[in-house]
Simulated assay, not measured.
Amino acid sequence: MTTVTSPRVLAHPGRDEIRLENVLHALADPMRLRVVRELAAGEADLTCSDIELPVTKSTTTHHFRVLRENGVIRQTYQGTAKMNGLRRDDLEALFPGLLDRVLEAAEAQERRLADD
């Protein structure tokens, strides 16, 4: 007899539960913004270890959790890997243009600071 275990499922807010102030809070941290920028630049979901942050593993876990709990990313397990993807469709439906403008502003800021 084999025992079937259910896949691990992480809690995510539904689209109707995502609030602008929570999304902005999640994006306000430089490390979380870095995660979002890397996810936006990729063509596929990334594992947590694909995104290197200059912080401890526990702090990295915290940043991913904040992004997930505030509706910015979706995390799913594929085997033992936790995959991360932007909730671009949900964010665009709720706040048209917001994510693209934030990503553009982050890129412009990076260029400006590199010129200093």
Rank of each mutant, 00 (worst) to 15 (best):
P54I: 09
T47N: 09
T59L: 13
R112D: 04
K82D: 00
M83G: 08
E21P: 00
F64V: 03
H62W: 13
R65W: 05
A93D: 14
R88H: 12
C48G: 15
A81E: 06
L24Y: 08
E43C: 10
G79D: 01
N22H: 14
E69N: 15
T80P: 05
D100M: 05
R8H: 06
R65V: 02
L46W: 05
V55K: 05
R37H: 07
A40C: 06
H63P: 06
G42K: 13
V9A: 04
N84H: 02
N22I: 08
M1Y: 07
V66N: 02
D16A: 14
P54L: 06
H25F: 15
L67Y: 03
A26H: 02
M31S: 10
I18A: 01
Q78I: 09
E43A: 12
H12E: 08
T3W: 11
E104S: 12
R111H: 09
R37E: 14
L53H: 06
A41S: 14
G97W: 03
V102R: 05
P96A: 10
A93F: 06
T80K: 10
K82W: 02
R15Y: 04
L94K: 11
G79P: 00
D16V: 03
D29G: 10
Q78E: 14
N84S: 14
G97V: 04
L91C: 05
L91Q: 03
E38G: 07
Q75W: 03
S6I: 07
V9Y: 00
H63K: 08
E69A: 13
A114K: 04
F64T: 02
T47F: 08
E104D: 14
V55M: 11
V66D: 01
E69M: 12
A81P: 00
R68P: 00
E17P: 06
N70P: 01
P7G: 02
F64K: 00
K82L: 14
P7D: 06
A44R: 15
Q109D: 13
D50A: 15
D45K: 10
R34F: 08
D16M: 02
F64C: 02
F64S: 05
V72N: 03
P13S: 05
V23A: 04
I18Q: 04
G85S: 15
T61W: 09
F95C: 06
T60F: 01
G97S: 04
D100C: 06
E69R: 15
R19S: 09
E107C: 05
L27D: 02
M31T: 07
